[in-house]
Each structure stands twice: as structure tokens, then as C-alpha cells.
């Protein structure tokens, strides 16, 4: 353990490269498995918020149904956020521990990428918006490019008003997607005219699709290099900073 990463299995063209994707950034929990870029199994639950209870059995189920043993995996992909902190960490701890134990590399993707990628055929700028609770949202912006989407605005956290201000500043036709868009659609539309796709969540299926393209370029990392995207300091730290900054 802790040694150099072994040569990824199945990367040599002889066998289809197997990638397991794990996604737990919102109230949904999902697992997907791809073989040579094709999704061969997936499992998703969007109710109950029982990430810790659901995830490990879901991994077992998906692999068993696809007749794949975990030690055949080449890469573990994971949604690194932003999202709900506790849920995110269930996926991250599971994914990094799996990769560490199996001695295989990892690919981390943002939850916002996972929302934008399925909109790669849309005709306008895609703005994934994830509910950050406490009246705030996480968002980023993407433009279509051949074969996918390209991020043009980095992941940000702010109030719904901040999001509207960002949209107004760019004044482009946009498509909103994500649970933050669902929750605050009316408020956003009062400030900026736009359309949305209802009910979309970051999913493990686009995760393994994106990860496969990346894995072909060997664009992966060691499990210890996977960094969660929190975008917000821990609560207690915030109150401490404000107390100190007060005169």
C-alpha cells in the first residue's frame, strides 16, 4: 500500500477497461459501471437520503449483475462536489478507500460537470445549479464543444441574487439544470428570463462516461490527490473569523 500505482487493468486494448463511478453529492446516491466506455450497469436512488446505508450494497449489486469482480476494475471515478457535505464524504471515503485497497488510479469530477454533460446537445449556455442550503446555491457555466461541454465559469457559491447578478452580467441565453434550479426557479426567473430542465440530478452515468474519455488519455490521479470541492469554510470557522474581524 502507498506504493506506485500499478498499470491500470484493461487499458491495453485486449480487455474492455472497467470504470466504477460513485456519486453522492446531492440527495441522490448512484453507482455506474462502464466497460470500454459503454455503461453496462447503473443503480440510482433519489429518495430517503440514506447514502451510507445504500452505497456499499449498491456497488456490490451493480458489479454482481454485470458479472464484474472489483479486482478487475481499472479506475474508480467519483463526484467530488460541490454538494451536501455529509453525503459527498460518504462517496469520497468509499471511492478513495476502494481505489487505495485495489491499488488503482482515480478520476474526480465535479457534480456540476455531471449536470452539464447530459446537456451537451442543448443550443445555449448550460448553468447547473445545486442547492447549497442556507439560502445559497452552487453553480458554474458550460458551453457546448464538439463531443461535450467546456466550463466557462468556475464553480461558485452564493445567494440566488448573486446567481441572478452573474446571469445578468453575461446576458446570454441559458438553460438551468439541477436541484437548486428546481427549488429557486421562480426567484431566478423573476430576475432573469431563462428556461430549465426539471428534476435532473448529478448522476453516476455521465460520471463514468466522462471518466472513460479521461482515462483514455491516462488523465487520472492517485487516490490521495482527490480533493473534495466544498466552496464553503466549515460553519464554526465562519463565526470565529467574523468575531475576530469585529472591532
Amino acid at each position: 500500500m502507498g506504493g506506485a500505482l500499478g498499470a491500470p487493468r484493461g487499458g491495453d486494448g485486449g480487455v474492455a477497461m472497467l470504470i466504477l463511478g460513485i456519486e453522492t453529492a446531492t440527495d441522490q446516491v448512484g453507482v455506474a459501471l462502464s466497460a470500454g466506455g459503454a455503461v453496462v450497469a447503473s443503480f440510482e436512488v433519489a429518495r430517503g437520503r440514506r447514502h451510507a446505508e445504500t452505497l456499499a450494497p449498491a456497488i456490490e449489486f451493480v458489479c454482481r449483475q454485470a458479472e464484474v469482480r472489483l479486482d478487475e476494475l481499472a479506475v474508480v471515478a467519483v463526484d467530488v462536489g460541490p454538494g451536501l457535505f455529509t453525503g459527498m464524504r460518504v462517496g469520497l471515503a468509499t471511492a478513495t478507500s476502494l481505489a487505495q485497497a485495489l491499488r488503482i488510479p482515480m478520476i474526480g469530477r465535479s457534480s456540476l460537470d455531471l449536470l452539464a454533460f447530459p446537456c451537451r446537445h442543448a443550443d445555449r449556455v448550460v448553468v447547473p445549479v445545486i442547492d447549497a442550503r442556507k439560502g445559497e446555491v452552487f453553480w458554474a457555466m458550460y458551453r457546448q464543444v464538439p463531443g461535450g461541454v467546456q466550463r466557462v465559469v468556475e464553480p461558485t457559491v452564493g445567494s440566488v441574487d448573486d446567481l441572478v447578478a452573474d446571469l445578468l452580467a453575461r446576458s446570454e441565453e441559458v438553460l438551468l439544470v439541477g436541484d437548486g434550479a428546481d427549488r429557486y426557479l421562480e426567484e431566478i426567473q423573476q430576475g432573469y428570463r431563462c428556461e430549465s430542465i426539471d428534476g435532473a440530478r448529478p448522476s453516476a452515468v455521465p460520471l463514468v462516461q466522462l471518466a472513460h474519455a479521461q482515462a483514455l488519455r491516462e488523465d487520472w490521479v492517485n487516490p490521495r490527490e482527490i480533493e473534495p470541492i466544498y466552496l464553503r469554510p466549515p460553519d464554526a470557522q465562519i463565526s470565529w473569523v467574523t468575531r475576530r474581524e469585529r472591532p
Binding site: 451510507a52 456490490e60 472489483l70 479486482d71 460518504v90 471515503a93 468509499t94 478507500s97 485497497a101
Partner: peptide, 18 residues
């Protein structure tokens, strides 16, 4: 809860992997 979940998730992953 949040602290426990990190260990529990990791432990189950080791159990699956090995």
C-alpha cells in the same frame, strides 16, 4: 454522525475490495 460516516464508508469499501 458526519465523522462516523467517513470511517463507516471507508471500512465498508475495504471490506468490499478485499
Amino acid at each position: 454522525i458526519g465523522a462516523l460516516l467517513v470511517g463507516v464508508s471507508g471500512a465498508k469499501a475495504y471490506s468490499l475490495a478485499w
